[in-house]
């Protein structure tokens, strides 16, 4: 195998390891940090199933963002939905045809939605980028990393789109390369420059995911203002470190 292929193989393993390790570490941290007080933003659901609904409306529909700013919601939701559709489309590069999932992944609707979602993704990203430049309030709060993050994902989207619509890449060899990674039977990476850029940017994204604001993905599920049940009068809620204070004082 060429040095290039070896490099990509190693980089993918490294990126995957960092992504998984980093995310697990953060999720464990979030789960283990106590929430000593009941702080749901009210009105809040009074039952657990209500909380599941509230969380679903946040994660699926971006309900709070919709209340806040229709433009940001439109661009943000468009981008995330497109990301999901593109993800489904990409499954065919990692699932072997004898898998039970294959018929699903290979559905025409999954493939073409995933393909054209790229346009929505790019429009969404440009919209978000535009807000950062043209709205003085958003410009004020933007760091270089905030622009670079959008450019990085835009780069991934554009190179991906170009391989779909302009210069097709060697999908068969790409799939061999990816399956080779999964089954530890390494195959050469195709040398199409567009593909190599696409893959490199994805490696970068995977590495920075757990050390950047992309932590909003796991973070939203742990947000006490959204995931707590509004029942403080009915159920006494005490964190372990706070319970120690109770033990020290005679009630």
């Amino acid at each position: 195998m060429s040095a290039l292929s070896v490099t990509y193989v190693l980089m993918f393993y490294l990126a995957t390891a960092l992504l998984v390790f980093g995310l697990v570490r953060k999720i464990v941290q979030y789960a283990q940090t106590p929430a000593p007080l009941k702080i749901p933003t009210t009105p809040a659901p009074v039952t657990k199933s209500g909380v599941v609904l509230r969380m679903a409306s946040e994660v699926v529909l971006f309900n709070s963002l919709f209340k806040a700013s229709k433009w940001t919601w439109l661009f943000g939701w468009m981008f995330h939905l497109a990301l999901l559709l593109a993800f489904f489309r990409h499954l065919r590069y990692v699932i072997s045809p004898d898998s039970f999932l294959w018929p699903l992944v290979n559905l025409e609707i999954v493939q073409s939605f995933g393909k054209y979602a790229g346009f929505a993704m790019i429009i969404g990203l440009l919209g978000l980028f535009g807000r950062r430049i043209f709205v003085d309030r958003v410009r004020y709060i933007s760091s270089p990393s905030d622009y670079l993050m959008l450019l990085l994902i835009l780069g991934i989207a554009v190179t991906g789109m170009m391989m779909s619509f302009v210069a097709h890449t060697d999908i068969v060899h790409l799939k061999e390369f990816i399956l080779g990674l999964i089954y530890f039977n390494w195959q050469p990476v195709p040398t199409d420059p567009l593909l190599l850029i696409h893959l490199s940017l994805i490696i970068v994204l995977m590495i920075i995911f757990p050390i950047s604001k992309l932590l909003h993905a796991p973070g939203v599920f742990f947000s006490p203002t959204r995931n707590q049940v509004d029942n403080p009068r009915e159920v006494r809620h005490v964190a372990p470190w706070a319970a120690k204070l109770d033990a020290e004082s005679d009630s």
Binding site: K26, Q29, Y30, T33, P34, A35, P36, I39, S64, L65, A68, S69, T72, G76, L128, R131, R132, V135, R137, V138, I141, S142, S143, D146, K213, L215, H216, G219, V220, F222, S223, P224, T225, A239, W241
Partner: peptide, 17 residues
């Protein structure tokens, strides 16, 4: 000691909402 603080410090994406 406060999950709120840890999660909130990490999660902001500077969307401007």
């Amino acid at each position: 000691k406060y999950r709120s603080l840890q999660v909130f410090l990490d999660s902001c994406v500077k969307c401007g909402a």
